[in-house]
Structure formats: structure tokens, C-alpha cells
Amino acid sequence: MMSVSASQMHNGKAGSGKSTALKLGYILLYVVLIAVAVFQLFPLVWLLFFSLKNNQEVFNLPPLSLPTDPKWENYTKVWEAGNIGVYFLNSVWITLAATALTVVIASLVTFAITRMKWKASSLVLGLFMLAMMIPVHSTLIPLFSMFNKVHLIDNPLSLILTYVAFNMPITIMILLGFYYALPKEVEEASVIDGCSVNRMFFRIVFPMTSSVLATTAIINIIYNWNEFIFVNTFISSDTLKTLTVGVQNFIGQYTTDWGAIGATLMISILPILIAFLFLSDRIVEGIAAGSVKG
């Protein structure tokens, strides 16, 4: 009896030691994650303080110092006098239109490649994957020439078509793993019930991929929202420009309103942060689901 109780005491101490080590490991992990989070938030805090300063405070005060007199009027100035309201709306609708088209078309392409039997499916998939190797801005001159011939220069459609084309390969690549993992029994049952291919896709398959679609949507939104080169090249009318180009309005030949630039950048960041907060759970689900095949 004494030997049994001693063994139990030894096992209890070993279990307690493992539990303590596990707790210490979790504490260390949380400390590291908190440190990384603070490091990631540093630029946002700096930008917020930057946007509330005038030019003198920007250059004379330390980067993380609070402004002596917060200039909230910087936000009013850029929204009203700086025409940022128009640029903001242009960014919103162009980004959403390009993202919606990319997600729907990429889903249709992925469904055709993974679910339908046709000879050129592997070739089409290879062409899309090959497109990922092409530097985006190396196509700037050919695209400008093409859009100029079809009279799409200074037209938002040129931006939407460009964004859709360049985001298709990465979107298809993310969707592929998820589509391969989808059970075919559901589709087969719908076909037996008399469901057409189009109806099966939009009523059954498309809703089943909502988690991975959120992942592809946020990736598309971030790229489309922050894109600068194509907007600066294809769009010349002030009423059609987006936020990334509109920030140049506060850069003059002799003076630059740094506080207004900071306010514009802060306004441009907020929609992305809000979208990420709302879609963060779906993004994690989509990444996990898309990484499993079979």
C-alpha cells in the first residue's frame, strides 16, 4: 500500500510539473503575441497623432508625442476642401465592383476546372497559374495602349477590368484547395433531383464556399483599395480619382500640408480595418479549409 501511494504521489508531482510548464508556456506565448500586436499597432498610433498635428508640430515634436492642440479640422479640411469625399466614394464602389466580379468569375472558373470534365481544363489552370509570374506593372504600357484604342482611358471600367484580371490567379489558387475538399455527393444528389448545373452552382456550391470566399474577398479588397499605379496612369479626371491618388492634392510645389496628408491616410485605412474586423473569423475558416485537400 505504501508503494502504491508513493507511486501516486510521484505521478501527481510529475503531472503538476507538466501543468506548471504548460501554464508558463502559455504565459510566454501571450507575452510574445501582445508584444507583436503592440509593434503592429505602432504605425497606426503614430499616424493618428500625425494627422492631428500642423506642419510645425510634425517636424518639431517627437513622433509619438501628443499634439499640443489636436487639429481635428484636418479631417474636415480633407473631406470638404480636399475633395476626399468624392475620392472615397470612388474607391468604395470601384473596389467593391472589382472584388465582386473577381470572386464570382474565379468561383465559376474553379468550379469548371475541378468539377467538369473537359480536355483543356489543365491547360487553362496552368495559364492562370503562369499569370501569377508576370510582374503587374510590366503590363502598364500595353494596357494603356489597349485601353486607349477602345476609348477606356479616363474610365473606371479600365481599373475594374485590370483589377479583375490580375486578382484572378491568386483567387483561383485559394479556391482550388477548398473545391477539391467539397463532397461530390451533395452535387450528385442535386443532379438526381433534376437540378441544372447553373442552379446547382449558385444554390448549393456557391453558398458552401462562403468561408473561403471571405478570405479571397478581403485579399482583393486590400489590393484594389491600395492600388496606385493603374489609377495614376489610366485616370486623369479629378472626379474619377481614388483615395490613393487624391492624397497628392496636399503636396504642393513649395509647401506640403502634412497634417492633411495624415488625415487622408487615416481615412483610407479605416475601411480596410473595419472590413477585416467583420470578416476575420471567416478568413481564418477559409484559410484552414482551403489548406485541406481530399
Rank of each mutant, 00 (worst) to 15 (best):
165 A>S: 15
147 F>G: 04
166 F>Q: 07
156 P>F: 05
187 E>R: 08
183 P>I: 08
194 G>T: 10
172 I>L: 14
181 A>T: 04
190 S>R: 08
116 M>K: 12
219 I>V: 14
132 M>K: 07
144 F>E: 01
189 A>Q: 10
117 K>N: 14
200 M>W: 00
157 L>V: 12
212 V>G: 02
126 G>D: 01
201 F>H: 10
193 D>E: 12
189 A>D: 04
119 K>Y: 08
171 T>M: 07
131 A>C: 08
169 P>F: 03
131 A>R: 06
178 F>P: 01
127 L>N: 04
179 Y>Q: 08
182 L>S: 08
149 K>I: 03
161 L>I: 15
170 I>K: 08
178 F>K: 13
161 L>S: 03
137 H>K: 06
131 A>Y: 07
133 M>C: 03
204 I>F: 02
171 T>E: 05
197 V>K: 14
212 V>L: 06
217 A>E: 04
137 H>C: 00
185 E>R: 10
199 R>S: 13
114 T>Y: 03
148 N>M: 07
132 M>L: 14
184 K>P: 00
217 A>Y: 03
205 V>Q: 07
191 V>T: 08
177 G>L: 09
217 A>L: 13
206 F>C: 05
215 T>L: 14
203 R>W: 04
123 L>V: 14
124 V>A: 13
112 A>T: 11
178 F>N: 09
208 M>P: 00
177 G>M: 09
176 L>Q: 10
207 P>C: 11
172 I>G: 06
155 N>T: 02
170 I>D: 00
159 L>A: 01
202 F>N: 09
201 F>L: 15
195 C>G: 06
166 F>W: 13
179 Y>F: 15
138 S>V: 13
135 P>E: 05
130 L>Y: 07
117 K>D: 12
194 G>W: 09
137 H>A: 03
176 L>W: 05
167 N>W: 01
201 F>I: 13
218 I>T: 05
196 S>R: 11
197 V>W: 13
198 N>K: 12
184 K>Q: 10
123 L>W: 10
216 T>H: 05
114 T>A: 06
113 I>D: 01
113 I>V: 15
149 K>E: 04
141 I>K: 06
184 K>M: 09
153 I>V: 15
163 Y>M: 12
173 M>F: 15
153 I>S: 03
201 F>N: 09
147 F>P: 05
181 A>Q: 12
198 N>H: 05
218 I>D: 02
211 S>E: 11
158 S>E: 02
182 L>Q: 14
167 N>L: 12
157 L>F: 08
136 V>I: 13
200 M>F: 00
131 A>E: 06
125 L>P: 00
215 T>Y: 03
149 K>F: 00
162 T>C: 09
167 N>E: 09
194 G>C: 11
178 F>C: 02
169 P>N: 04
136 V>R: 12
199 R>E: 10
208 M>L: 15
158 S>T: 04
177 G>R: 11
159 L>M: 11
217 A>R: 08
176 L>D: 06
192 I>D: 00
169 P>E: 02
170 I>C: 01
119 K>L: 12
190 S>E: 08
128 F>N: 06
113 I>T: 07
211 S>M: 11
209 T>F: 06
173 M>K: 13
171 T>Q: 08
137 H>V: 10
127 L>G: 13
169 P>V: 06
185 E>A: 12
112 A>F: 03
114 T>R: 12
158 S>Q: 05
120 A>W: 10
